[in-house]
Amino acid sequence: MDEPVLSVAGFAALQRLARLRLSAEEAARLRPQLEAILGYVRRLEALDAESAEAGEEAAAPLRPDEPRPGLSPGEALAAAPDASEGFFRVPRVLKGPGA
């Protein structure tokens, strides 16, 4: 794992996974910074000789599954960039003959 982990193609795929579009200029600036960060955190490999166990993550307690007051539909939609008839509006997702 000593070669760069982020090829140009790999970095483009990473942007897709992160749902984040970078301009060419941004990508050229951020990719080497990200390489440096990922290179630095590899020092954690030195701990492999120790048998530290992470243990299980504590599960958050659950409250009873009972209705309780919440936001009204109007309040929940108030900050939406585009809402209509009680729904958040988004671009068409499904493609078909009628699209």
Partner: peptide
């Protein structure tokens, strides 16, 4: 739309961390 909205809305440090976190 997701990609463009997030690309326009987040600054550099947030983008670095979202990308680093997605990577790891």
């Amino acid at each position: 739309q997701y990609e463009a909205s997030r690309g326009a809305g987040f600054g550099d440090e947030v983008k670095r961390r979202v990308l680093a976190g997605t990577f790891v």
